[in-house]
Nucleic acid binder design. Structure first.
Length: 681
DNA sequence: AGCACGCCGACT
DNA sequence: GTCGGCGTGCTC
């Protein structure tokens, strides 16, 4: 870098009058919506996308050339010269377009999105001593072509035909075991023949090893993985090779959308319906939707794969924005095993000892284990009990920083807040009244189910699979191995277990609380519950062994459970679609959520109310709220929220943009905008 | 985001 | 008397 700086210094001295030297605007990877202007020696040709080093305040930063030859909007006396050019790096026009698109869609500052793209700032500073270069060999299209079935061949042919169209989106709708992965891997071959890059997006990175393995079997090389727990060196190397186009196959979670691809040829969004694609922290976005946008800007194909496509995607298929191809199950067996309902209302009428695992489910469990098979008990709730209170004074244990209960975790011996991570050791005495050993635990979590199993069936070997117990991919692999070796009879799992892993000897799935998730502030509650339960149910049996699924519920007549029972997805979708249309909800309208937060209670409330009073007056635009957010306090910050709804025909972003220009927001109140909100909490 | 500046409380 | 809290404002 010193020599680069020197060269700029020399060049600018050759043309001493600053006015003669052009001005460029530089976008910095900081949360600003505007660029900053710098001078550049006339003889240094800069073009947008180039990476330059500049002095910014006291700091030295790398930024990207945004535009050249403009008239500065501050007095020339304030302008500094750029310090140098970072050779060998540049963001392509497609990457810059994507950056702009994401910024305006999510209403986040350009610089914030740039920071996401320049997620490995170290790549721009040369290493002190050269690291051994990892090799990124090209995938071999003819390494190990699979034998495909007629319907797969047809699907591949369709996908190939899409490549000539430039931008296109196709939904690959196929049940588990119908060979979706083989189909899309085969379609990717076309990209490798053209030396293009491909991106496979996954909702969570724990699914990557399996896909990577299948990829390697097919193309003879391992793909480049991108996720948050890579080491510095790995990130550095992968980022560089993705930027240079050397790395051709990338498998990653949400954040891999923001990598600086050199020539992307196709994007696959696997499990497109998965709610994990929605990023809720920082810049709020739906990775599936951004993938479609990126495909549009790159003029390439996007493939969405799912066994239970989202309503949004189905809506786009119906309105012919997306193509749709379907794969039927290869084995001719039902898509998910027979599902039976256990009506807890009837059972609780009888005054038996209260267990979380009902008598019928317990019986089936015993039979399954006796038959030498394995079972899964599903409860999407971490810890021992979601709520603990003092039996003596009635105090409920609450997080001091959030309006949420503290969850008892036996594993850690702590009460933990699931929203901010705050935790306290489990003590014997109640802080409020001094009573000893007076805790009353309300409701079950996976740990409590494990305890009940140990008590009632001490001979069964059980394991919990939740994020508290399984902390990384290695731990998961170890547990999976134990299950495969039949060292485990019963798995007690949260949603972590719903995806990816298939255990051939697992024939029974018991769902402790099928109603969990059906209530609460989420417009997609029904859809999400349907998808989650469908996915969990799919863990039971497959191929030769028939599976059984038992759903414990207090609401057996709920449409979600009825359609799961009948296996009639079409009817469920139709009903759900109709109810969304009737309620003027997405995908029939657009929705945005505005979240006001501040440490000052009165300031948030006042700001939110002032904001609401200045709402655009149009009969098309509906504003709900403001009201204290369902989780009114998180991490010690007060939160109010507001919902905005507009017709699909207008840009909800511009409505909000205009609106915000009219209202002054005090600096101590932050506004977060969630376009297409999923969770209302 | 970082960093400086600035204005009020408890300490060597 | 100063050290340091974090509120406010600025960076081409």
């Amino acid at each position: 870098m010193p020599e680069q700086k020197q060269s700029v210094d020399e060049l600018k001295n050759q043309s001493p009058q600053a006015e003669k030297n052009p001005c460029v605007s530089i976008l910095l990877p900081l949360p600003f919506k505007d660029t900053y202007d710098y001078l550049v020696p006339a003889s240094l040709p800069l073009i947008p996308g180039m990476i330059v080093t500049v002095e910014f305040g006291q700091r030295h930063l790398n930024g990207v050339v945004w535009s050249v030859g403009k008239t500065p909007d501050v007095p020339v006396s304030k302008l500094k010269y750029i310090s140098g050019i970072v050779e060998g790096f540049s963001l392509s026009p497609e990457n810059l377009e994507f950056l702009k698109w994401v910024s305006s869609y999510t209403m986040s500052p350009l610089g914030t999105i740039l920071k996401m793209m320049m997620s490995v700032p170290e790549v721009f500073t040369p290493l002190k001593r050269p690291a051994p270069q990892r090799i990124f060999p090209a995938p071999d299209p003819s390494f190990n072509p699979p034998l495909l079935e007629p319907q797969q061949i047809e699907a591949v042919a369709f996908l190939k035909s899409q490549f000539s169209r430039g931008y296109s989106v196709t939904l690959l709708d196929g049940v588990t075991g119908s060979g979706k992965t083989e189909v899309y891997l085969e379609a990717l071959k076309e990209c490798f023949l053209k030396k293009q890059q491909i991106l496979i997006l996954l909702p969570q990175i724990s699914l990557a090893p399996q896909i990577a393995q299948r990829f390697e079997r097919r193309f003879g090389v391992s793909p480049t993985l991108w996720h948050s727990s890579l080491t510095k060196a790995q990130r550095r190397e992968s980022w560089k090779q993705i930027h240079s186009g050397q790395a051709q196959a990338i498998i990653g979670a949400r954040s891999s959308l923001f990598l600086p691809y050199a020539n992307l040829g196709m994007i696959v969004v696997d499990e497109e319906h998965d709610p994990a694609y929605k990023q809720e922290e920082g810049v709020i976005y739906q990775a599936r939707d951004l993938a479609v946008a990126r495909a549009y800007l790159e003029k390439i194909s996007c493939l969405l794969a799912s066994a239970t496509p989202s309503l949004e995607t189905l809506y786009n298929c119906e309105s012919e924005k997306y193509q749709r191809i379907q794969l039927k199950s290869r084995y001719g067996v039902a898509e998910i095993p027979a599902i039976q309902i256990i009506d807890l209302r009837q059972l609780s009428a009888r005054k038996e000892k209260k267990y979380w695992i009902s008598a019928p489910l317990a019986t089936h469990l015993k039979e399954t284990i006796a038959a030498g098979e394995q079972a899964l008990i599903y409860l999407n709730r971490r810890g021992y009990a979601p709520l603990t209170l003092c039996g003596s004074c009635g105090t409920k244990l609450q997080c001091p920083y959030c309006s949420a209960w503290l969850v008892n975790h036996l594993k850690h011996g702590k009460f933990i807040c699931h929203h901010c991570g705050h935790n306290v050791s489990v003590s014997k005495t109640c802080q409020e009244c001094g009573a000893e050993e007076s805790w009353v635990c309300c409701g079950p979590g996976v740990e409590r189910i494990a305890e009940e199993l140990a008590e009632r069936f001490p001979s069964f070997r059980t394991t919990i699979i939740s994020s508290d117990i399984i902390e990384d991919a290695d731990a998961m692999a170890q547990i999976a191995e134990k299950i495969h070796n039949h060292d485990i009879d019963i798995i007690i799992g949260t949603q972590m277990i719903a995806k990816g892993h298939h255990f051939p000897n697992l024939t029974l799935v018991g769902i402790i609380d099928a109603d969990l998730g059906l209530s609460g502030g989420d417009l997609r509650a029904s859809e999400k519950t349907y998808q989650a339960l469908h996915q969990v149910a799919g863990r039971a049996g497959r191929e030769e062994k028939t599976g059984h699924v038992y759903l414990q519920t207090y609401a057996p007549e709920h449409p979600v459970l009825m359609s799961l029972l009948s296996g009639d997805r079409e009817t469920f979708i139709a009903q759900e679609m109709e109810s969304r249309e009737r309620g003027d909800m997405p995908p029939f309208t657009r929705l945005a959520s505005l979240i006001f937060s501040s440490r000052h209670r009165e300031a948030v409330e006042l700001t939110a109310q002032t904001f609401a009073r200045n709402a655009p007056r149009s009969q098309d635009i509906l504003v709900l709220g403001p009201s204290p957010a369902p989780l009114a306090v998180v991490r010690g910050k007060y939160r109010w929220r507001m919902l905005v709804q507009t017709p699909r025909t207008i840009s909800i972003q511009s409505v909000i943009h205009q609106w915000m220009k009219q209202v002054k927001i005090p600096t101590n109140v932050k506004v977060k905008i969630d376009i297409d909100p999923y969770s209302f909490l």
